[in-house]
Design a protein around this nucleic acid. Structure first.
Length: 176
DNA sequence: GGGACGATTGAA
DNA sequence: TCAATCGTCCCA
């Protein structure tokens, strides 16, 4: 394993905690993407949402373990990627221990607000599903030495999940 | 096999 | 306000 792979990366232990701990701590971390041509970019994470377990009716795992959702049952530290509205890839970081389906949706990074916009910019697609953030040569997350203040809000686009689950304040935004 | 729908975005 | 666009899930 090269130094480039280890340097600065968050340890898998970071991700194998409850999603409600991990999600706010991802704010102010660097999302790093290395492209095929060797160029790489770093963006601070500015907005995330937590999805927590089969009981969370807004979480895809609320329908149980399927081919699509099985990656959320992995130990934390891998990516869950899916297509929405036929056009946009959503990037999620799986958290928690094995068999606790949880994930953090990355909704915004510095310069690219919106989950569909940032994946388009970073050229993230389905080939990143199940990608391991601790070993991948093309995407990882680094500590930036920041612990920004943040605001919590209800999650976006989950009105179908019922009064309780659509209102839990599991959307986290860096305070401007 | 068919149909409904979605953790979105951008344009009218 | 609404179309684009397709993988996934549910029902038959």
């Amino acid at each position: 394993m090269s130094n480039a792979i280890k340097e600065g990366r968050l340890d898998p232990v970071f991700f194998r905690r409850d999603v409600l701990e991990v999600a706010p701590e991802l704010l102010g971390k660097f999302l790093v993407r290395k492209f095929d041509n060797g160029r790489f970019v770093k963006h601070l994470i500015t907005e995330v949402e937590a999805y927590r377990g089969e009981e969370d009716l807004a979480c895809h795992a609320s329908k149980g373990k399927t081919p699509r959702t099985s990656v959320m049952y992995e130990p934390g530290g891998v990516l869950y990627i899916y297509l929405i509205y036929g056009m946009y890839w959503m990037m999620n970081v799986v958290t928690g221990p094995e068999d606790h389906p949880q994930a953090v949706l990355i909704r915004g990074i510095e310069g690219y607000d919106g989950p569909g916009k940032l994946t388009r910019h970073l050229k993230i697609d389905k080939t990143f599903n199940n990608e391991d953030l601790s070993t991948s040569p093309r995407i990882w997350i680094e500590d930036a030495g920041l612990r920004p203040e943040y605001t919590t809000l209800p999650r976006i686009g989950v009105d179908y999940a019922g009064e309780y689950w659509k209102n839990v304040p599991w959307r986290y935004m860096i305070r401007l």
